[in-house]
Amino acid sequence: MLLTLAMVALAAALAESNGFSVATTLFSLVALGAVSAHACVNVLNEVHDARSGLDDLTQRTPFSGGSGALQANPQALKAASRLGKALLALLITIGCYFIYLRGWSLLPLGIAGMVLVMAYTPMLTRRPWLCLIAPGLGFGPLMLTGSYFVLTGEYSWSVLAVSLIPFFLVNNLLLLNQFPDLTADVQVGRRNLLITYGPGIALRIFRWFLLAAYSVLAILVAVGILPPLALLGLLSLSLAIPLYYGIASLNEPQQVPHRLLGLNVAINISLPLLIAIGLALSS
C-alpha cells in the first residue's frame, strides 16, 4: 500500500506545483480510492491463485508467492472472495462520486482501471506483453494522472510525462517478482514475458526499464517540465545502482536474492516520494 500512497502524494505535489490548492478531504478520498483499487487487485489475485492451486506450488518470499494466508486457512476462501467484491464495490462507488464531481471525462480512465483490476490475474498473465506493461499502466498513467485530474479538474500532458517514471518502475516490480514463481507459473498455464522469452530477455528489459525511469526524470528536469529540486529523486540511485549491477551479474536468474527484490521495492516507493518532496520544496 505504500506504493499507492506514494503515487497519490506525487499527484498532490504535482497539483500544488502547478498552482492548485489541494483540499485535505479530497486528497484523503483520492487516497482511499487508490488504496481500494490496489487492495482489490491484491485480494482478487490471492483468491484466484488459491483456486488455481498456484500458491500451493510457489516457494514464498517476502515479495512474491502470495501471502500464504489462504493456504494456512483454506476455509477463509469465500470470505476473501467477498472482501474482494466489497473492495470492488467501494472502488466503483468512489469512482462514481469522482465522475459526479469532475465530469464524464474521467470515465475512460475509470473503465481502463476497472479492466486492469478485474482482468490482470485471470487474463493478462497469459499475454506476455500485456502482463509486462499492465502494472505500470495501472500505477502510472492511470493512477497518477487520474489522481491529478480528480485533485485539479484538469488533465496535463506534463503529468502524463511524469507518469512514465512509475510506469517503468512498477513494470519492473512485477517482472522481477515473477522470477521466484517461474516454475509454479508454468504449471498453472501462465505465459508472462519471463516464461515466453526466458530469463535473459526478461532481465535485459528490466535493466532498460530501470535506466528509462531515471532518464525520464533527467529529461523532464532538463526541459523544464519538472523543477531542479525534483532531482532529489536521484538520491534513490544509491539503491538503483546496486540493483542494476546485481541483476547484471546473476549467475542463476531463477534464484534472485531477496536483497535485490527488496531493493526493487524500495526504489518503487522512494523515487516518486523523493520527487514529490522536491516538488513540495519548490512550491
Rank of each mutant, 00 (worst) to 15 (best):
M7T: 13
A12S: 13
F27H: 05
V30D: 10
V41N: 00
A50L: 10
R51H: 13
R51N: 08
L54I: 04
D55F: 08
R60C: 02
T61C: 02
A69L: 13
Q75W: 05
A76K: 06
K78C: 01
K78Y: 07
R82S: 06
K85E: 14
K85S: 13
A86E: 01
L87F: 13
L88S: 13
L90R: 01
T93R: 00
T93L: 15
G103M: 11
W104T: 12
L107D: 00
I111A: 09
M123P: 00
R127Y: 13
C131P: 06
L137C: 15
P141L: 14
L142F: 09
L142V: 12
T145I: 03
G146M: 05
S147Y: 03
S147I: 04
G153F: 08
G153I: 10
Y155W: 15
V159E: 01
V159H: 04
A161H: 06
V162E: 05
S163H: 08
I165L: 12
V170D: 00
T183M: 03
A184N: 02
A184G: 07
D185C: 12
V186W: 13
V188M: 11
V188G: 14
G189T: 11
L194S: 09
T196Y: 01
G198R: 04
L203A: 08
F206R: 06
W208N: 05
L210T: 10
V216S: 09
V216R: 15
A218V: 15
L220M: 05
L237A: 10
S238G: 11
L243V: 10
Y244E: 06
Y245R: 14
G246T: 07
A248P: 01
L250E: 12
N251S: 15
N251Y: 01
P253G: 11
R259H: 10
L260H: 01
L263W: 09
V265L: 15
I269P: 01
I277N: 00
L279Q: 04
A280E: 02
L281V: 13
S282A: 15
S282W: 13
